[in-house]
Amino acid sequence: MDAWEAALLVIATIGSVAAAAGAWFQERRSSAAQLAAVQRKLDLVMAHLGIAAPEEQEILEHVRNGRTIEAVRVYRKQTGASLLEAKQAVDRLSTPHRPGL
């Protein structure tokens, strides 16, 4: 095998590994987006039914008292969510459900 064939083999191997890694990362992003969508829907159903999970009681208390930042901090601590996800969840909890929207 000469040097050109070896170089092409190395490049093809690197390309294959990069493609597999890219597909794996894309699948992870897709799964995370699907999970976030399901969580949002579940939050809406629970809010519509007036059901609050036990760990939400502390968060809801902070929201009712106007301490949004503290509610976001507690939500992040309990769920491990990102700052943006926690803020969106607290906003959903603090906004009354309006049918038809």
Rank of each mutant, 00 (worst) to 15 (best):
Ala33Gly: 06
Thr95Ser: 15
Ala37Met: 07
Thr79Ala: 08
Leu93Tyr: 00
Gln78Phe: 05
Leu44Tyr: 08
Arg92His: 05
Arg29Pro: 01
Arg40Pro: 00
Trp24Met: 05
Val17Pro: 02
Ser16Met: 06
Leu101Ala: 15
Arg29Cys: 06
Pro99Cys: 09
Ala52Cys: 12
Leu9Arg: 15
Gly80Glu: 05
Thr79Arg: 06
Ala20Arg: 08
Gly80Leu: 02
Ser94His: 01
Arg98Cys: 06
Gly66Asp: 03
Thr79Tyr: 02
Ile69Pro: 02
Leu83Arg: 06
Arg67Val: 03
Ile11Asp: 12
Ile59Arg: 00
Ala32Gln: 15
Ala71Trp: 01
Ala32Arg: 14
Val90Ser: 00
Val90Asn: 00
Asp43Cys: 08
Ile11Lys: 12
Glu61Val: 01
Ser31Trp: 10
Asp43Lys: 01
Pro54Gly: 08
Ala12Glu: 07
Val72Glu: 03
Arg28Val: 09
Ile51Ser: 07
Phe25His: 08
Ile59Gln: 00
Ala37Glu: 14
Trp4Phe: 09
Trp24Val: 05
Leu42Asn: 11
Ala52Ile: 05
Lys77Glu: 07
Gln26Asp: 06
Leu49Val: 04
Val90Tyr: 00
Ala33Tyr: 06
Lys87Ser: 08
Leu44Pro: 02
Asp43Gln: 09
Gln34Leu: 14
Gly50Thr: 01
Leu84Asp: 14
Ala21Cys: 09
Ala37Tyr: 04
Ile51Val: 13
Ala18Glu: 04
Val74Ala: 11
Ala47Ser: 15
Ala20Ile: 11
Lys87Trp: 04
Asn65Met: 12
Leu42Gln: 12
Ala81Phe: 00
Thr79Asn: 06
Ala32Thr: 03
Leu35Cys: 11
Ala86Leu: 02
Ile51Gln: 12
Val17Cys: 13
Asp43Tyr: 00
Gln57Phe: 07
Asp43Leu: 11
Leu60Pro: 00
Met1Arg: 06
Ala33Asn: 10
Pro96Tyr: 08
Pro99Leu: 12
Ala33Glu: 12
Trp24Ala: 10
Val17Met: 11
Gly22Ala: 10
Val38Lys: 14
Ile14Cys: 13
Arg92Asn: 02
Glu56Phe: 00
Glu55Gly: 13
Ser82Val: 02
Tyr75Cys: 11
Val38Arg: 15
Glu85Tyr: 07
Ser16Gly: 15
Ile14Gln: 10
Arg28Trp: 08
Val10Arg: 15
Glu27Asn: 15
Ala53Lys: 08
Thr13Ile: 07
Glu70Asn: 10
Arg64Val: 01
Ala23Pro: 03
Gln34Ala: 15
Gln34Asp: 11
Met46Arg: 13
Ala52Lys: 04
Arg98Leu: 12
Ala7Arg: 13
Trp4Cys: 09
Ser31Leu: 10
Leu60His: 02
Ile69Ser: 14
